[in-house]
Simulated scan of single mutants.
Amino acid sequence: MPRIQDDGAELLKTWTLSSTATFGSSVRTKGIFQELRARLVPASKKALSLDGNDVVLAMPASEKTGFNAAMFAVNKAMAGIEDLPIIPREIQDILGIKAGERHRWLADGRLPSAGTRTVRLNGRARQITFHVFDPKVVQDLLDRGAVDEWRVEDAEVKAEKRQGVPYRAKLTRTSKKARDAKGASNRQETPAAVPLKGWEEFDIDGLLR
């Protein structure tokens, strides 16, 4: 429940982020806070702070107009905070996965994308685009232990590939031996390789000239 305090010296309001919104992830909590701060005008950004799971807005009593505007902006953002798309670093922390796993499972479709987002890096002209993820889908992955299943599947595929290398090498060697044996057999059956009876007589009579 948001709390408002006005003691004549400072205006204060606090919002507590639910575990449904944060997934118990400190990275997700910080990401939500940064999203809330981005909704404020530059002059009010520093007035918003994060204390654990509490988002705190504190401003001097003399800035009541700015405080009310900032409070309205945060309230509006908080209304849909549980549906805020999850960004890459957040999903890695929530699911306990590495960047390589995220890329692999995203590429093969096991980790569904909810679309892409483009942002401009602070102080730079460069923009980056990345995939975001639906919180409901991420919750489902957690509930059914999908990550553990995917890791088992990947380990099995990797083991099969390792076993396949020597097997293919063995097949190659076997095929080569078969080809060599066949070649030797063909050479043995060639007339030139078979001793000819009466060769000397043919040669003496000049029949091969």
Rank of each mutant, 00 (worst) to 15 (best):
L142P: 02
I87K: 14
R120S: 08
I86G: 04
R89A: 11
E10F: 13
G80A: 09
V55T: 04
R124T: 08
I4Y: 15
A146G: 04
R39W: 03
W105V: 06
M71H: 09
G145M: 05
L196I: 13
R102Q: 15
S44H: 11
R3P: 01
D108A: 01
L111K: 00
A114V: 00
A159V: 02
G109P: 06
D154N: 12
R209Q: 10
G80P: 00
H131A: 15
I97N: 07
W105K: 05
A77H: 06
V55S: 07
E82P: 00
N186I: 12
D140S: 15
D154C: 04
A107Y: 05
V194K: 15
G164V: 01
E149Y: 09
A79E: 15
S44W: 12
S19N: 03
T118D: 04
V194T: 13
D143I: 01
P42D: 14
V157G: 01
L84Y: 14
A192S: 14
A181Y: 07
A69I: 12
K177H: 08
V27L: 07
A155E: 15
R102P: 00
D180F: 03
D205V: 05
Q92S: 10
A70H: 10
R209A: 11
W199C: 05
A181K: 13
G183A: 15
A43K: 14
T16P: 00
V147M: 07
A107L: 10
G96W: 09
A79N: 12
K158E: 15
A169N: 14
S44G: 00
P135E: 10
W199T: 09
G115R: 14
T174K: 07
G66A: 11
R126H: 06
N53P: 01
V138E: 02
P60W: 14
G123E: 06
E189N: 11
T16W: 01
V137S: 12
S49Y: 08
I128T: 09
G31Y: 07
T14C: 10
K45H: 06
E90S: 07
V74M: 03
Q5A: 07
D54E: 15
I87T: 10
G145C: 11
A69M: 12
D143Y: 03
T65Y: 01
T118C: 03
R104T: 13
R104W: 02
